[in-house]
C-alpha cells in the first residue's frame, strides 16, 4: 500500500520529496512496514554493539571496589550481565538466533530508512529542545513549538497545526499546573491562571 492509497495527501514540496511513495507494503497485522529493499542495521552490527557494550560493562564492573570482608560485592552483577550480553551479542552476530525464529516471526522489517528515516529523529530532538528551552521560554511557548513542529513533520497543514499548537499546551498546562500542581516553568509567557 503506498502513501497515495492511504487517503493521506503529503504536504507539497519538501515533504513529498522526502517521502517518495515506494514499493512498500504495510503489514497492518503487525503494524510494521515490510519492504523489499531494507536499510536497517544488520544482526552483525547490533550483535557487535552488544558484544562491545557487554565487554565494557564486565570490565568496568570488575574494577568496582569490593566491600571489605565479603566475597560478592557490587562487581558481581555487572560482570554476570556483561558476560551474558557478550554471549548473546556473539550469537546474534553469527546469526545463530535466526534459526530459532519461526519464519513468520521474522517481522521486524524496517521502513524507509533513507531520508525519510531522519524524520524519526524529530520527537527526540524536540524533547531535547524542551530540556534546553523550557526554563527560559516557559512551558507554553516551548510546548507550542514542540506541537507545531511535530504536527508539521507528520504532514499536518498549518490550518490544523497552528490552532493545535496554541490549544494543546494551554490544556496540558491547565491540567498539570492547576489540577496536578506540577511546577511547570513560567518563562517568558505566563499562563493567565
Amino acid at each position: 500500500m503506498d502513501r497515495a492509497a492511504t487517503g493521506h495527501k503529503p504536504a507539497p514540496g519538501r515533504s513529498r520529496r522526502r517521502f517518495r511513495p515506494q514499493a512498500s507494503v504495510l503489514d497492518w497485522a503487525t503494524g510494521k512496514q515490510v519492504q523489499g529493499v531494507s536499510v536497517h542495521l544488520s544482526d552483525r552490527v547490533t550483535g557487535g554493539v552488544l558484544v562491545a557494550l557487554g565487554a565494557a560493562a564486565a570490565i568496568a564492573g570488575s574494577r568496582l571496589p569490593a566491600v571489605p570482608g565479603q566475597e560478592v560485592g557490587p562487581a558481581a552483577f555487572p560482570l554476570l550481565i556483561g558476560s551474558g550480553l557478550v554471549i548473546c551479542g556473539a550469537l546474534i552476530a553469527f546469526g545463530i538466533g535466526r534459526s530459532f525464529e519461526v519464519p513468520e516471526e521474522e517481522e521486524a522489517p524496517p521502513g524507509p530508512w533513507r531520508l525519510g528515516g531522519l524524520r524519526a529523529l524529530v520527537p527526540p530532538a524536540l524533547l531535547l529542545f524542551y530540556v534546553l528551552a523550557a526554563d527560559r521560554l516557559g512551558f507554553l511557548l516551548t510546548g507550542a513549538v514542540m506541537v507545531f513542529v511535530a504536527a508539521f513533520a507528520l504532514g499536518a497543514r498549518p490550518r490544523l497545526a497552528l490552532p493545535l499548537a496554541i490549544v494543546a499546551p494551554l490544556l496540558v498546562h491547565l491540567a498539570f499546573y492547576k489540577l496536578l500542581r506540577v511546577p511547570l516553568p513560567e518563562g517568558l509567557l505566563a499562563a493567565p491562571w
Partner: peptide, 10 residues
C-alpha cells in the same frame, strides 16, 4: 517516532 516514518492508517 514510528508514526513519523510510516504512512497514516486509512
Amino acid at each position: 517516532m514510528r508514526a513519523m516514518v510510516t504512512p497514516e492508517p486509512p
